[in-house]
Design a protein around this nucleic acid. Sequence first.
DNA 1: CGTTTGCTTGACAGCATTCAACGTTGGTGG
DNA 2: CCACCAACGTTGAATGCTGTCAAGCAAACG
Lengths: 276, 276
Amino acid sequence: MLNPTPISIEPQQRADRNPCVHGGTASHPDGCGSQSRPMRLDSFKVACSSCNLRELCLPVGLTQTQLNHLDDLVASRRMVKRGEALFHTGDPFRSLYAVRTGFFKTRISAEDGRDQVTGFQMAGELLGLDGISTDRHACDAIALEDSQVCVIPYSQLEDLSREVSDLQHQFHKIMSREIVRDHGVMLLLGSMRAEERLAAFLLNLTQRLHARGFSASALVLRMTREEIGSYLGLKLETVSRTFSKFQEEGFLEVKQRDIRIMDEAGLRALVNNARC
Amino acid sequence: MLNPTPISIEPQQRADRNPCVHGGTASHPDGCGSQSRPMRLDSFKVACSSCNLRELCLPVGLTQTQLNHLDDLVASRRMVKRGEALFHTGDPFRSLYAVRTGFFKTRISAEDGRDQVTGFQMAGELLGLDGISTDRHACDAIALEDSQVCVIPYSQLEDLSREVSDLQHQFHKIMSREIVRDHGVMLLLGSMRAEERLAAFLLNLTQRLHARGFSASALVLRMTREEIGSYLGLKLETVSRTFSKFQEEGFLEVKQRDIRIMDEAGLRALVNNARC
DNA sequence: CGTTTGCTTGACAGCATTCAACGTTGGTGG
DNA sequence: CCACCAACGTTGAATGCTGTCAAGCAAACG
């Protein structure tokens, strides 16, 4: 589903790759690097054409000339601190956002207070597509660590994609991919048991991290058990128990949010051969 | 989510409105009207500009001039008999399809044979958006009754939407709406119990039927209990039991696939005040 | 009119939730 | 530097919702 070839990535993110996850007192990786900066919401120039995420993000497949046009459009970045919202349900929709660094969740809330995490977004992924439908955002986007996003003014994106058919097509592909992804989540929620759901979730995360140059076998979860549970349609206790079970069975090593995958094939078999 | 104002609709469909659902030997409405025609897959001229679904479909908001351009694009229809597929997973993606008459389900299949119904589509709704992502369809679309779709060649749609910004915007809105809808289904699958799921499903169906000029309180299900169950993440027995329970409690009258809603407010309360 | 497919209902089992207690971690302030 | 607190995570026991298995019924189709 995602570009399978690893790409070069920022030093800042690379440092995040926790070579010492299973050392002794591993410092918590949240907010790595950007925490001490006083800046909070700011605009400064940045170029898609020189961004090392361009092979994962909106610019995929564009020529240099086309990239230069996109540079004019994506004129600002915004920083979002851990726990803060990039946008809320009901906010007027004006821009899409491309995650540059950091990690987000999106969630929708029902009238009765229940909420559902609908996705986790990492570098190169787009946020805000839900807003096009009604000109208002239909979910909350919350940063799970200090993050930066590129601001993509939507009306300008529409203008430019009328000029640049490659951009138009790429944008449509991204929306379509989101639809396909959502259908995969429906399959997970509608027909898998807890173990299968968690295994599928971990495999999806590691695959996406791997495509960004990170290890395919070690990861640091940026979200709580409750957030994982909400995404997977499980209670946090069930998530915790399933992690413990995977550890007992030798699939994983689990130390709070530090996960090491010991038997990827085993996890994969859990998902694919569910009824055997 | 959908256009709430009823619109005029074809006589053929109107006849389908089952005024005698609760009479004696109501004939099964599947295949109404088009069943005896020998035609199976055909191309013939049809105009969006004179289609009575234009206020629900792709042409929403377009001027007469713009509609005429769209007429050139949507040049053929296709008939799909009950039980047959409009497209299968893996088929090359070339066109989107707008349901003109009839009713479809989409489903995805996992490697182990499990499948998940990802949606039910009725008149005015678009099929095939999943295919843009990889140039191949990512699900099966199956007609649940004899149906007609308008064929919308995708590359031509991209061409035209570069010329007609209103069309471009409308198309983006439709894709975005699909994403928002999918997130709603995730909420349903991830956090609702069987009764709430079925109530939400029925309310959604009646709302969409109402927007098409049908009764908001009586409907004929076009899908089996098993298909409803797949969509809602439940087993068919649970769906059946829940229907029976709703009938006992006075929310519904259920006669196989004929449903009459006796207490819509009650159903709505079930969904909204889930934990009280 | 028989067969097939779909629907209903019952009994029982199992998986996930609920409720509760305890442990761990990181941050704050004395 | 240490104590305390709040948030997060783990684990146990019991409940209950939904799934499973099975039987019988109803409707549609040839």
